[in-house]
Structures are given as structure tokens and as C-alpha cells.
Design a protein around this nucleic acid. Sequence first.
DNA 1: GGCCCTTGTCGAACCGGTAACCCATCGTTA
DNA 2: TAACGATGGGTTACCGGTTCGACAAGGGCC
Lengths: 342, 342
Amino acid sequence: MVTLVDVARYAGVSASTVSYALSGKRSISRKTRDRIEQAIATLDYHPNAGARALAGKRSHIIALMVPLHTEVHVPTMMEIAIAVTVAAREHGYDVLLLTNDEGPDGVQRVAASGLADGVILMDVRLDDERVPVLHARGVPAALIGLPADPAGLSCVDHDFATAGALCADHLADLGHRDVAFIGYGSAVYQRHAGYAERTLTGFRERAEARGLRSLHRPCEGTYESTAGTLARILADRPDTTAFVVQNERAIGPLLSLLRAGGRTVPEDASVIAICPDVLAEQHSPRLTSVSSPKKELGQLAVDQVMARIDAHAEARDPEDRLLLMPPELVVRESTAPAPRRT
Amino acid sequence: MVTLVDVARYAGVSASTVSYALSGKRSISRKTRDRIEQAIATLDYHPNAGARALAGKRSHIIALMVPLHTEVHVPTMMEIAIAVTVAAREHGYDVLLLTNDEGPDGVQRVAASGLADGVILMDVRLDDERVPVLHARGVPAALIGLPADPAGLSCVDHDFATAGALCADHLADLGHRDVAFIGYGSAVYQRHAGYAERTLTGFRERAEARGLRSLHRPCEGTYESTAGTLARILADRPDTTAFVVQNERAIGPLLSLLRAGGRTVPEDASVIAICPDVLAEQHSPRLTSVSSPKKELGQLAVDQVMARIDAHAEARDPEDRLLLMPPELVVRESTAPAPRRT
DNA sequence: GGCCCTTGTCGAACCGGTAACCCATCGTTA
DNA sequence: TAACGATGGGTTACCGGTTCGACAAGGGCC
């Protein structure tokens, strides 16, 4: 194994000089720096991570805690995880993968041992148990999602309320009067994940403001449950002409069922999906959808932890942040003016 | 920060005794061990990861490199990643998330710096560029997937050939004569991922052996492409009575299209999906499917790296391993005896 | 010419564990 | 009874970086 001392010897300088050349924390003459870089290249030197962490008091690792349960849309979660990883690399950081089953102890473990300099928590619940640990140990952290009390924390999330509102607006603009909201399974609402409620509230309030009659039904996302949900909606409100779907899994079944029921999209019924663009593009007709930038969300989360890690190192109080990413509504082929009442 | 020396002082023993009590590498008297554990608990001691890595020459971290492109089924990939993480924890290891865009350099980076003790590579291609790096640096590794030349490597994967064969057998048993295989988009085949080819080969050979006429068509998985694929199949082989679908995304569209075309599943056409059980359960009718255990796959991969890490530490030559996990065919509601020829 | 400041480099003290080596005690065996 | 192995614990030299303080050389200023 090649060490910094080997490099120093080869370049004819002291170890500390090499260290400074690498970190740039002191000025090094052009000539010496060239010699050192030459030595590093020929010897194929890679600084030892453990030693660096020990001496520098920074592991250059952030932990990312991901959910285990399958109720969340996995590709969306993964996309955020990837974005976090890529963004972290740009800060010279690597990402440690933690699973939610470790719970608060996991956060404790990686933070107290200095394994990770900071933590990003996904799938934050309103009364998340991990939050107290962050406060108790002063762990630099960023949350993706909103807890009930975000004081003293940095949180980033999609602006679900606006997403819901955009749907209501679009349908109102098209002249629809009776609209239905097909949500997640009731487990998600019981879990108090927050995002489901926020979307629904945003939708309902705007719908009311625009004079729409709206209906909300939870849906597990299987074909059968979607069939049941749709049947109940049409029984309760036969005049429903538009559907907003938040449960990604229910989209395919819903389209099938509408078609099977003789309703053409968008002529007889409009459909808006709250889902990633790629998903919306896959269906036929291509779906008008509201999507939120996941890559930016991941980057933002990383920026937040980095700021907190720096603040922590300088024994400075970090700023609280609560950032909501605005969603975007893309009109495709699944929405059209409301059909004339017959 | 509480250090091992603090614990030692509190317990009235030397630092090394605490270290040995923790690692269990030497016998420690019951009494001393109790005092030490007491001290650890009251002081809330957590060993410093960096120091441990430096002194012990083990970071207790394995790197997991995941694919970036969206052609693979993301939930499946995620499930494996989670299984790896959980299994690693049981060995006292944590998992570092690397993305495929770092390529061979990423492997190099984490291995040479001692950040990770070993590496697990997912989405291995036949001519994977990362494999030479493993050989060159002698990085302890396990591959999920098979490269063209697995010599000197530990590989684990699903037994896709058998999965394909199981499909052919089941359909032959039910008396089908003309069967179609709906595969992945052509990009997957061009990428030489291996698994697509292996499934197809396994299917074709068994189909031939059982006297079936088989047809293979690639499919991108969108509604339109599935419609095109299905139309071509029925045009080329109007007598086709059974479909094997490997592309998870094509499943929903296929069922919709068959229904729309007036073919009832399974009375008029049988469908087998090669996909996770949860997915198969979601559709209507519930699908007969061939699935492979992802959790076990992840565990196996971890076992393999661990063995290689140990071998590496003892300067011992590890055994090459090539483990294929047998798939399982579960009969549900989407397959039935072939309809009588009219 | 003396003084001070800047720039570039070195020496050495850590950082917090690990493990090799040494030593004392005690029970066992020839 | 002397020799010996097993058991339990201490001493100390690392592991490979980071960083503070010291210091020499060179330039500008009075």
C-alpha cells in the first residue's frame, strides 16, 4: 500500500507538504506541487479513508436512510437516492445506505461513531421517532418530507399541496364540475406520512374555491381495489367527469376499467396523474400529469446537510430551512373540456 | 467525545483490555467484562469508526454499485439492494452506495482508499469494464449477474435459463402448441446484459424439446409498443394461445389489449409473467408467474464478499463460486389448458 | 543595513483504536 | 517439588493521515 510518506519521499519533500498540496490549505510553490502530483501519479497513491477520517474528524460520508415498506413508489424513491448519491459525490462525499428498520438506533449508531458526518432521512413521518435523536445529539441532517414540528431542522419536500391545487385548477379551467380524487391505500393515511394529506388538502381547498364538487376515495392500487373504488365513485357521483390519481399503481387499472366501461379518455372522462413524467408517457393516451423534480430534491437535501455539517464543524448554529419544490403540470392527451351534460 | 481510554479509566482497566472485551479476541474475566460493559453504558461510548478502520485495517464497509439506467426493473433492484444492506448489517458491515456512472473508477476509488473492504456489483454485463479492475487490484467482490468470463470471481444470479424452461414446460403440460415470448426492449439485448438472452435460450430450448412452436418479440413496455408487438405476433402466428412476458412493464398493457381484443385470460389465452410475486398478484386475473428469490440473492452476494474479504485478509486464495438461484413457478389464474382448435 | 511581512517547507504532536509482546498468577503434571 | 500451560491483564508500538508552530529565504520599506 502506498502511503503519503511514500509520496513525500519520492517527491523529496516532507509528509506535511504533501498533505497541504492535496488539501490546498496552505500555498505550495508551483514546482513542488508539480513534483508531488507527478509522484502521486506514478505511485498510484490513494489517501487512506480511515486515516483521513481519524485525523481530519470528517468521514466524508453521509448516511441516507430509506424506507423499507412497499407503499411508497419505489422508482421515485430510488431516483431520489441516486440523485443524492451523485450530488454527494460532487461535494467529495460518499453515501452510506441505511434501512428504516434500524430506526432511531441506526441514526445514533452512524452519527456517534463518526461513520457519517451527516444524515438524510427519507419517508419522514409526522411524528418521526428519528427526529428526537437528531436533536439530542445535534446530528447534521436533512429531512426529505415534513415532520409535525420542523423547528431546528432542515427539511426539503415536494410541494404536494400545490400539486393538488394545480390539478383542481386545470380541471376547473376545462369546465369540469364533478371530480374525484383517487388516493393511496388507507395504510398510507394511517401512517401519517403527511404527503398524502397535503396533496388532498391542496386539492380540496382549491376545488372548493373553484366551485368544484370533489370526492376522495383511498385505493390500494390492485386491479380489484381500483375497480371497487371506481364503482363506488360512479355510484355516489354518476356525473363525475374527471379523475385525479395519486396512487401510481392505480393508473393502469383505472385506464383499463374506464375503457372497459365504455368511457373514452379524454372525451368522456379526463384523467390527471400525480406521478413522474416517464410513467405518464407510458400510458395510452399519454397522461396529463403533475410531477415534481426528484433530482433537484436530492441535490437540495445534500446541500442542506453539507451546510449543516460545515456549521457543526465551526460550532456555528445552522439556519433552519423548509424548502418545498414547486411541481409542474404537463398537459398531455388525457384531459379535455368536460363533456356536455346530456 | 467518549473514547476507549475514557471507558478504560472509568472501569479501572487498561485500554487494550477494553478493546479485547469488545472484540472478543481474548478471554476476559466475567467480572472485568461486566465492569467494562457498565462503563460503556453509562458513558454512552461508541467506538470511532475511522480509528477502528485505520488500526484494524478494515472499514467494515462494503460498496454496492447499482445501475443508473431505467431499463432494469427498479423495484427488483431496490429489493436486492435492501437485502444486501440488511444482510451486511448482520455481519457488522455497512453498505456504501455507488452509482454505475462512476464505472471502473468508482471501484478503484473505494477499494484503493480502503473506504470499502469489498464490492458488490449489480447489473453485470457480459463484457463488464469493472471486472478487470477487480482482477488488477485483487478487490474482494461478488457479482450479481454473470460476465462472459467468470474465472476468478464469485458470481450469484437468478437461474434465468431455468425460469424460461419452466415457462415452456408449464405451457406444454397444458397442451399449448403455439407460444410467444414477449421480451425486453432491444436495448437490453444490445447491452448484453446476459439475463435476457439466458431466459430466452432456456425457454426456446425447452420449447423445442417439448415440441412447441415458439416466437420471440422484443417489447419496450409502453402501451403502444406492446400493442404493436401483440399485433405482430398475432399476424405472424394467429394460432398463438399462450404468452410469456418478461418485461414487467408490458404486463399491464398486454392484459388490457387481450381483453380489448376479445380474448379472455385464461380461457382464450394463457399468460405467464416472469416477475416478482407481488406484481403477479396485483393483476386481474392474478398471474401465473415465475419468480426468483431476491432476498436470498442479496444475502448470498453478501456471504460471498465476506468470504472473499476474509480470504484477502489471510492472504488466502478464495474459491471461485458461481451460484444460480432456482426460480419457482407459481400457478395462479392466468394459465389454463389450451383452447380446442376450431 | 535592520526590520517586518509574506511565502514555502518541515517537524512533531496528535486523532482513537488494534494487537503483538510481556508478565503475573494459579492449577496441573511428572 | 519443579516445570509448565492456561488464563487474565498491562505496555507500547503502530495504522496513515492532519495541522499547529517554527523557521528560513526573499522582498519592500524606512
